[in-house]
Design a protein around this nucleic acid. Sequence first.
DNA 1: AGACAAAATATAGACTGTCTAGGACACGCG
DNA 2: CGCGTGTCCTAGACAGTCTATATTTTGTCT
Lengths: 116, 116
Amino acid sequence: MPAPKPDLLRGTLDLLVLEVLRAGPLHGYAIGQQIQRLSDDLLRVEQGSLYPALYRMHRRGWLRSRWGTASSGRRARIYSLTGVGKRRLASESAAWRDYAEGVQRVLEQLSEHGDS
Amino acid sequence: MPAPKPDLLRGTLDLLVLEVLRAGPLHGYAIGQQIQRLSDDLLRVEQGSLYPALYRMHRRGWLRSRWGTASSGRRARIYSLTGVGKRRLASESAAWRDYAEGVQRVLEQLSEHGDS
DNA sequence: AGACAAAATATAGACTGTCTAGGACACGCG
DNA sequence: CGCGTGTCCTAGACAGTCTATATTTTGTCT
């Protein structure tokens, strides 16, 4: 059962939320499930992490929100990307790729032949 | 100039240090430079992050340390992996791969065709 | 109908780890 | 002899996730 390292989630949660919303508006609870589903259960987001993250991103203008109805019929706060959010998604996405690439290089120890 | 997202480093710094030390003992200052070099400058670790991380890992028994001499001739604290550290490297490495894989799947949105 | 589980939002407080911003010391070189 | 730089060290600010708990509404089971 996932939720492995809090410190790994930190730094990627925003990216994950933005990416999930790229496919269309969704409410908070569903966003969490979608992350879990899309990642084939490799990732899990606790509610106590998700909601504060959504407020933060909303406050920063990356998300828009309105009250609506979930597919289950219950009331829910529906989030969608703003223009700023879309641009943010692009930059977070690029930052992640660079970072992951950097880690990968260290793990493979490709460089280093001792020039100088 | 790197050092892009503190929150990305968090969760991988331990892994990076362990991995660099896998190639052999090294002192703190050199570990930081090695991470930067191996990653082709994609990654950068501040001293204020590195030293506390080394103490933490030492305290947890992942690293062994002794006073020695850097290649420059100055005194330096040389770190090396313990048995626990090697095992830790393996598990951190696996956790990273799983996590990165999970993020990748979300970014590609491969699953989900809307069955139900 | 009534009870209970599940969906969905919400929040407080603890905890942990990185950053900025310094300071200290030793060595080598001009 | 003084200065730069390699090297170590630390305090405090800050941000974000976790655990835990509460609340409301809907659907389901007997």
